[in-house]
Each structure stands twice: as structure tokens, then as C-alpha cells.
Amino acid sequence: MAVKNYFDPENLKKFGNITEFQEEMGKKFFEYYNTVFEEGALTQREKSLIALAVAHTVQCPYCIDAYSKGCLEKGADEEQMMEAVHVAAAIRSGASLVNGVQMMNHVKDISM
């Protein structure tokens, strides 16, 4: 069947099916994934907020869907979630801007 859309929210429910093509690695991935999100030095809520920020950075719509709900289910609110997205945006824009120093250095190197 030809794929009509690149993003289908229903795919998120089938994430577990990735083991169909590579069982061992898939199982190991999910085991690792589940361990990462357990309560630890960071709370589950803090981990969900980090995941939400990263989801925006890697621009994964599945992850954004999952962690928008996940953050709420861990007790975060809209304000905290948007602040997390701003953290992602700040780092992302900062990562561009800090390279401006490289540009400035280069310009100065070749300018009179």
C-alpha cells in the first residue's frame, strides 16, 4: 500500500512494532528507554519536560504528541512545558549565534 502521508498519528501506537524487523535490538532499545524514564536522580516529570524540549529540537511530531500528553500526566503544566520549549529554542538559537564568533574571526582574519 502506498504511503499517502509522511506523518500519521496512528503510527505512534505501533512504535512497539519496530521489533518486527529486528527483535533483539528493538527489545534492548525499549528496555533501555523504559529504564531512562523511571524515577531516578531526576523525577519523571523533569525527564518528561526534557523529552519535550528535545522532541522540539529534533522536530519529531510523534515525540511532541507523546510528551505533550506525557508531561501533563506527570503533573507538569502549560507554563512549565512552554518554558522547556523555550530552553530548546534558546539552545538552538544560541548554537547558531555562538558560531557567529567563528564567522567574525574568519572575517577579521581576511579583512584589512
Binding site: 524515577e39 523525577t43 519523571q44 516529570r45 500528553k69 501533563l72 500526566e73 506527570k74 503533573g75
Partner: peptide
């Protein structure tokens, strides 16, 4: 008493109480 403000399940009671 905390109950979610929307169509999602509540967080862990211990974690919410602390927060």
C-alpha cells in the same frame, strides 16, 4: 485532591504531593 484538568490520567500521587 488533585484531578487532571483534561483528558489525561493523573501523575503519581507521591510525586504530585511533593511538588
Amino acid at each position: 485532591v488533585y484531578n487532571p484538568s483534561g483528558a489525561f490520567l493523573p501523575a503519581s500521587q507521591v510525586s504530585l504531593e511533593k511538588e
